[in-house]
């Protein structure tokens, strides 16, 4: 800062010995800084535009060579074939099956853990368990993939063998189960937050009538927090749809149209990883198919998000 009396705050003095009140300099520094900050914030819009633009432009280039009809209705996905087959159904089925298996684990487990944390667990317990669960979600997904392929699959294979069944080395079941466990912290944490923000008065009303904690939790707290809990579920679904490494490692790299989780399959995300790590030249249709696949994934995610938003609005309780 400059010496006394000469800073931007006090431009000299006037006849009464005080600083004049009329606006002196316009303080360019302030305006420049504010613009810089605004650009930083606005960059988020540019990023979204960039994502949408890339997906759409490249997909359009893709659909110049491949037929949209085949894309949507064809059952074979084989970009390496001659001629290549681009039916997205098998990738979509792979994505949906792994997601469903994951949610079969994540939603019940996550919800029960959330209710337990919010309604039953002592504060000390909650304060240890909640961060520990968050630690679980902080583990990189490659590690989960390793675990799925090299621990869960052999374990499941041993289990299946006990009953006379076999399980292939790559299968959607292991990947889905591990993915489910990975998503539990998201669902549990958000649901618990939603339930904790339900006012105690509502609980007390139910308890005063002689309800047990369980009844209060199920019939009062859970419905009241439904909006937040739905948001948690939607987040879990999005997470599962977009998950890449676990499925790429453990579910396989063969696109197959099947709803049997014990089979190998390829998800949209695993496909993208496979192609971009490979040898196909940049301008080829096979390469561009990853953008079309990515666009499909975005649309699916968006559909769930919007659906979730509408659902939340229906269930939003005001208290």
């Amino acid at each position: 800062m400059s010496n006394a009396g000469r800073s931007a705050n006090s431009p000299g003095t006037n006849r009464s010995g005080h600083t004049p009140l009329k606006r002196g300099r316009l303080r360019w520094g302030e305006k420049v800084f504010e613009t810089l900050l605004m650009l930083a914030a606005a960059s988020s819009v540019l990023i979204t535009v960039g994502i949408v633009a890339v997906l759409i432009v490249e997909s359009m280039a893709f659909f110049e060579d491949a037929s949209l009809r085949e894309f949507l209705t064809g059952a074979t996905w084989a970009p390496g074939f001659d001629p290549p087959a681009f039916g997205i159904r098998s990738l979509v089925s792979g994505t949906l099956v792994t997601t469903t298996v994951a949610l079969f684990v994540a939603i019940p487990v996550g919800t029960i853990v959330a209710v337990w944390l919010s309604e039953y667990a002592k504060p000390k317990v909650r304060e240890t368990v909640k961060p520990a669960l968050e630690l679980l979600s902080a583990i990189p997904t490659v590690v989960f993939g390793y675990f799925a392929l090299l621990f869960v699959t052999p374990a499941l294979q041993w289990l299946f063998a006990r009953f006379g069944f076999s399980l292939p080395g790559f299968n959607m079941l292991s990947a889905g189960l591990v993915m489910g466990v990975m998503i539990v912290p998201y669902i549990a944490s958000l649901s618990e937050d939603a339930m904790r923000s339900v006012p105690t008065a509502l609980r007390e009303g139910a308890l005063a009538m002689g309800a047990t904690k369980f009844q209060t939790a199920m019939k009062v707290v859970f419905p009241a927090a439904l909006s937040g809990i739905t948001a948690a579920y939607i987040l879990g679904i999005s997470r599962a749809l977009g998950e890449t490494m676990i499925v790429a490692i453990a579910a396989g790299q063969e696109a197959k149209f099947t709803f049997d989780p014990t089979e190998q399959a390829q998800t949209i995300t695993a496909f993208i990883v496979q192609i971009s790590g490979g040898d196909l030249p940049h301008e080829s249709t096979g390469y561009r198919s990853i953008f079309a696949a990515g666009l499909t994934l975005m649309i699916m995610t968006l559909a769930f998000n919007v659906g979730g938003f509408l659902l939340r609005r229906r269930y939003k309780e005001t208290y």
């Binding site: 977009g242 998950e243 990883v273 990853i290 975005m298």
Partner: peptide, 9 residues
Amino acid sequence: VPSIIWGLM
């Protein structure tokens, strides 16, 4: 946004 989409972008 799923992380793979970031990769595509």
